[in-house]
Nucleic acid binder design. Sequence first.
DNA 1: TCATACATGTAACCCGTTACATGATTAC
DNA 2: GTAATCATGTAACGGGTTACATGTATGA
Lengths: 189, 189
Amino acid sequence: MALRHAVLAALLDGELSGYQLAKAFDAGMANFWHALPQQLYSELAKLEREGLVAGREVVQETRPNKRLFTVTEAGFAELHRFAGAPSKPSFIRDDLMVKVAAADSIEAAELIGQLEERAAIATAKIELFEALLRKMRGELDEAEFLARGGRIGPYLTCLRGRQFEQGNLDWCIRAASVLRAREGADVQR
Amino acid sequence: MALRHAVLAALLDGELSGYQLAKAFDAGMANFWHALPQQLYSELAKLEREGLVAGREVVQETRPNKRLFTVTEAGFAELHRFAGAPSKPSFIRDDLMVKVAAADSIEAAELIGQLEERAAIATAKIELFEALLRKMRGELDEAEFLARGGRIGPYLTCLRGRQFEQGNLDWCIRAASVLRAREGADVQR
DNA sequence: TCATACATGTAACCCGTTACATGATTAC
DNA sequence: GTAATCATGTAACGGGTTACATGTATGA
């Protein structure tokens, strides 16, 4: 049960509608979480019922009306409680890893193709995260920003996201090259 | 629906009982997947019903009887089909990242403690994975093994697992030191 | 004697994903 | 015209986690 906390964390920057929250999850939270709009709408509804967020209706003329949500006192209290609870170590759980694990009984060409595709995705994400980091730190350099900037939380998680994707990229390239070298080569079975 | 494929991949090395499979998931698969025994038992039952694995009863005298499972022809076919399907990129989804994202409204000391704890766990996992890697490659060095060894699949995923934990470790240390430096310092709010 | 390893499951619940459903406005 | 953006949901399904349930054998 941690999506609720990710939502609370996302709302710390200011009040957001469900729709804006979905955007935020596609951008700033994307390094460590992902959620579809439906899930966010229903999670917001649940959080409101429990009094952890408060919504206020904003009437718009040209656009459909929307509801903006803020974290309540009870919401902050819940975040603090959450911060104190132990966090279970995470692992990767990736289809591509399962495929590589079975590499010895799967056609190499297929696998190599998928590894290259993933490498391309990782490259794109790295660029995206780097742009985000530049935007967050503004005119300060990284050391300055981390030492004295505001809201370093999202910056730190974005750093981890970038590093994670760099790890994906390096590994995909390496695994693909290993598999390519073995194709047709003389190998133990 | 990918646990089934992880199970099939794990069974490639030879026939295993549910219990042994649970061990295997705690060791060799641990770098990229985790599953509780209950889930494995029920997944094996499902796979057997669908004909993707075959179980054979082994009567034991001093121990309770057990059932050993092997991948069937249909199971291999399913693995090949799976290998051809697109794999969605994964992301981290970690409680600790949520906490760091909310760092600006959470007590730093708590967070630093959790980051250090996680760093210790990562260190332990790295050692574990390194031992596993040494065991898998036997007397060959890494380049030799990757070029000509048998069963490189698990080796490659274990490399990713080690690298992932190294990433966790580096990031935890960095994030903790950033937070420590800011404690009591003059910071934007 | 007590903890650990061996050995296998069932049941309930929550969370996440997929599919369905609607409808106006703005920019190309 | 057509795609993208704004805006909000419901329903069904499947997977993962937690709790429950049982029993033997070995080693400290």
